[in-house]
């Protein structure tokens, strides 16, 4: 291909608009972001953090397994700057002391209990449109693509962090959310995070993020944090609550 080879590569002009970027570029995005708490995740996110005024989809296999472990740092930084943290339709009742242990101010937390898919969407949209500048975390297990688009349009016009939790099955559907993050557990203390969609080059290798639920660092010894491959055999419980144990041991002695 001599004709092609003779064309000297000319440097592309710098993009004039923010929503036009060069395909190999990760850095220059002029949007405000909130740090995720992991430098390695921030490095992969456009703008070095969770983007504001934008719907972020978090895809997970099972609800109520890793939500606050992934987003806890962002929620805390919003709460520290006097922003409100709204939880829409959590899959299990939220434990107030547990969520306060994340470092959130109890006065900044709102739990909106919505059951029906339409209620969840309506509440989420009202909160996004209220432009409160805080963070909205909504569990939307049954949202459709057009509904996500509607939320994204609302999010663009307002300031705040907007996360929606959706099931992993939604990964193969089209979505208007500019950032889609799939999260799974590599082992109990490691989150495996994959950026399914972002406004930058395709993200290939999943990130392994060290994550210990807040509060547990103080009670876990280093040996607990080793990756677990096989479950060791459990001796019969020997503490006072369970009376069955001593009898079992006696029987063993008798056999010997």
């Amino acid at each position: 291909m001599p004709a092609l080879a003779s064309i000297a590569p000319s440097p592309a002009p710098p993009p004039q608009r923010l929503d036009v970027w060069r395909a190999d570029d990760l850095q220059p995005i002029d949007a405000s972001t909130t740090a995720s708490g992991w430098p390695e995740l921030d490095a992969e996110l456009p703008g070095r953090g969770w983007p504001r005024s934008c719907l972020v989809e978090v895809l997970g296999t099972q609800p109520s397994t890793a939500e606050f472990r992934l987003l806890g740092h962002a929620l805390k930084s919003v709460s520290d700057s006097e922003g409100q943290v709204a939880l829409v339709g959590p899959p299990k009742p939220v434990h107030a002391p547990g969520i306060c242990q994340l470092g959130l101010d109890p006065r900044q937390i709102i739990w909106l209990e919505a059951q029906q898919p339409s209620e969840r969407l309506w509440v989420t949209e009202q909160l996004i449109r209220s432009n409160a500048g805080g963070v909205v975390l909504a569990w939307l297990p049954q949202a459709r693509a057009d509904q996500i688009r509607r939320l994204q349009v609302a999010a663009q016009a307002t300031d705040g962090l907007f996360f929606t939790w959706r099931p992993e099955a939604a990964r193969h559907e089209a979505s208007a959310a500019p950032l889609r993050v799939s999260v799974a557990m590599a082992d109990p203390w490691t989150l495996e995070v994959h950026l399914v969609k972002r406004r930058r080059p395709v993200h290939t290798a999943p990130l392994l993020l060290r994550s210990i639920p807040t509060g547990l660092e103080s009670v876990l010894a280093p040996r607990h944090l080793q990756p677990v491959h096989a479950l060791p055999p459990v001796p019969a419980p020997a503490h006072a609550v369970d009376r069955a144990a001593p009898r079992a041991r006696r029987r063993l002695v008798a056999v010997q």
Partner: peptide
């Protein structure tokens, strides 16, 4: 002014409480 944002949020919460019922918009107590 962040104060203004808090007010608009309060209005939104009141609207949500009017539709869902006041006991479904909750704040934590320890």
């Amino acid at each position: 002014d962040p104060q203004e944002n808090v007010e608009t949020l309060a209005l939104a919460l009141e609207r949500i409480a009017a539709r869902l019922g006041p006991d479904r918009v909750r704040r934590p107590r320890l």
